Simulated assay, not measured.
Amino acid sequence: MPPKERRIALMGFRSVGKSSLTIQFVENHFVDLYDPTIENTFEKTIKLRGQEYVLQLVDTAGQDEYSILPQSYFMSIDGYVLVYSVNSHKSFDVVKVVYEKLLDMKGIIKGVPVVLVGNKCDLTMDREVPVEEGKKLASSWNVPFQEASAKENQSVTDIFHQIVMAIEKAEGGTPEKSGCTVS
C-alpha cells in the first residue's frame, strides 16, 4: 500500500509546548529555548498497524481567545492536536475556545479528528489543571485525551498515533494490522 499523507495542526495558547512536542516527536530531542512560532511545518513518516503515514505537522502560532484563526488552519488539515499546559489554567480555557472556533470554521458538529493534550505533566509542583479536568473535557468532546511531557519524552509518540487513528476513524477506516513501529 502506498503511504497515506496526513496534515495535522497543533493548536493552543502560546508557550504550552506545541513546538517542543513537535520537535521531540520528529527529531527526538527537547529544545529548551525556542523562538515563538509564526508557523512551521515538520514532516515524519511512521508505520502504524501495517500502514505507512507521511505526517505533515503544522506547528501553529499560539492562539488566545481573541485571535482570528487563519483559514489555512482549517483548509487541508486532517486532524488537530489541541494542547494546553497543565501549569496554566488560562491555556486550558483557551483550548476550549479554539475547539469551538474549530467546530464553527469546519461546520461540523461531530467527527472532527481531535486529540486533547495536557503538556508539561512533569511540572507536578506547578500544576493548575487536574488530570480529571482534562479527561472530563475530552470526554465531553468525545475525543482522546493524553497528558504528556515533551521535556521527558513522555507519551509524545502516543499523541501522534492517537490523532492518526482519530483521522482514520473519521474517514471510516482503520489501519489493518496490529502493532506499531516508528521509523
Rank of each mutant, 00 (worst) to 15 (best):
E52T: 11
H161A: 10
S139Q: 09
Q71K: 15
Q63W: 02
L21P: 06
Y99A: 06
L69S: 00
S140I: 04
S183L: 12
P130G: 10
T157D: 14
Y34D: 15
G62N: 07
N119G: 15
P3Y: 07
I159H: 13
Q63F: 08
T22E: 02
K177E: 13
Q56K: 09
K177C: 05
E147T: 05
A61S: 12
S67D: 04
G134I: 12
S85G: 09
E65I: 07
V117K: 00
P175N: 02
S91E: 08
L103G: 05
S183Y: 04
D126Q: 08
A9M: 13
V54N: 13
A138C: 05
A9H: 12
G17R: 00
G172V: 10
V16M: 00
V16H: 02
K169D: 12
V58S: 10
D126R: 09
L137I: 09
G50H: 02
T22G: 12
V54D: 03
Y73Q: 00
Q71L: 10
K18L: 14
A138W: 07
S76W: 09
I8T: 09
V54F: 11
V143R: 01
Q63E: 11
P2S: 12
Q162R: 08
V131T: 07
V81E: 07
V182S: 07
S20R: 00
A150C: 03
D35S: 09
M11N: 06
T41Q: 15
V143L: 04
S20K: 01
K136C: 08
Y66W: 02
D126T: 14
K169H: 12
K101C: 03
L33K: 15
F160M: 08
N87G: 06
E132Y: 14
N119M: 06
E176C: 00
C180P: 04
E176W: 04
M165A: 10
I159R: 11
C180A: 12
Y84H: 01
Q162H: 06
F92K: 07
H89S: 11
K44V: 13
V182E: 08
K47T: 11
R127M: 02
L55R: 01
Y73P: 00
V31C: 08
N28D: 14
I108G: 00
S178Y: 11
